[in-house]
Design a protein around this nucleic acid. Structure first.
Lengths: 193, 193
DNA sequence: CGGATCGTTGATCAACTTCAACGGTCGTGG
DNA sequence: CCACGACCGTTGAAGTTGATCAACGATCCG
């Protein structure tokens, strides 16, 4: 179960045997079945998670009861409630499993311990932050500039593997359009080819 | 001109005399008049900037020629093209001054030097990244859930000082709505009170 | 087999955009 | 110092896009 994390971290920097011990010490393995929650809105926020296998998502529910997906997390992605990383904070979103998943949990203290003791983690974290930040900027700009069709086409180009794995209505939720609209957009795109 | 940056950094961690020397060494002061560009799309990307005085903005132009504001940067904010921090990258957006401004430039090498030599910088950078990331998440979610009126009201609550300083059509651009729509929304809000 | 969930399709509706025109303000050049 | 043009915010009317509501067939799973 730790293998995926090792490989992930070693892409930035090799891991020593000691590093691996620290990792074992800090991360808590957990299995989630499809549909199970990692986090519910209002829960005491404790963990971030690394996805070894499977597929998670985070989402909010607005005051009309509609779900809005913030993030998808397939293998080798991190997922957590970024809005409130402060300790003792209440979660502002839900996180659940779209497929049966194996994940590794890490809490605030563990995060600092890793930063301190495992160099590969710090670098990887830094790099990840930058990449994410850029991706978010792109998403923001896109939500301002692009209409439903462009958003969809861009998504399937950027994340083809995710697009195939995710039920259509969730993709619609992520893109911020109604499922019906997505269906129509897809039909239109089909005919073009 | 460096005073603002000192104060900003000292909020996280005190600065030694040596620290201040490094800062003087690394940052390049620059003045911008209202309307002047710091960065144009396609420019070779070199600098991030700290705003000591004044007001900048970054924006993109879509294929229909319309501006979309990504970020406002008043005093004590950083601004740069996050999309492409890699060295040698081409800028993907514009940055210009909304008011006459004093700014301090830092390039990639300077950034690493600061990280290495000035502890306050690293902490501040880290904290800033987190805060920004959270703000971006919020903006993404908001653009999915909220209509024009909610977006406007939320903005003037969250950034009242910015709302007053920025011309209305720029605020509209930031919020992703037409200037006319913003005008109508404001009238509606006025009458409510 | 029966219920639930999902994607699709059609019809209607609301929100927002676009286009056009107008008045006010500001800054600049005559 | 005034006059003109540019820019900005406002208002009205028409047009579009996408949301909503409703119904239907397909698939999956118990």
């Amino acid at each position: 179960m730790f293998g995926a994390l090792y490989e992930y971290l070693e892409k930035t920097h090799p891991l020593s045997t000691v590093d691996k011990e620290v990792i074992h010490d800090v991360f808590i393995p957990k299995k989630l079945l499809k549909g199970e929650f990692l986090l519910r809105e209002g829960d005491l926020l404790k963990y971030g998670a690394f996805v070894c296998k499977g597929f998670l998502r985070s989402y909010v529910i607005d005051n009309k009861g509609k779900e809005h997906i913030i993030q998808f997390a397939p293998e080798n992605w991190w997922i957590s409630d970024k809005g409130a990383t402060a300790e003792g904070a209440k979660a502002s979103c839900f996180i659940d499993a779209i497929e049966d998943s194996d994940i590794l949990l890490i809490d605030q203290a563990g995060h600092f311990k890793m930063l301190e003791k495992v160099p590969a983690y710090g670098r990887s974290f830094q790099a990840g932050m930058q990449k994410r930040s850029a991706a978010k900027d792109k998403r923001i700009v896109h939500s301002l500039v692009a209409d439903a069709e462009e958003r969809y086409n861009d998504f399937i180009q950027t994340y083809p593997s995710i697009a195939q794995r995710v039920p259509q209505h969730m993709l619609a939720s992520y893109l911020g359009i109604a499922p019906e609209t997505l269906s129509r957009v897809r039909r239109k795109s089909m005919r073009k080819k």
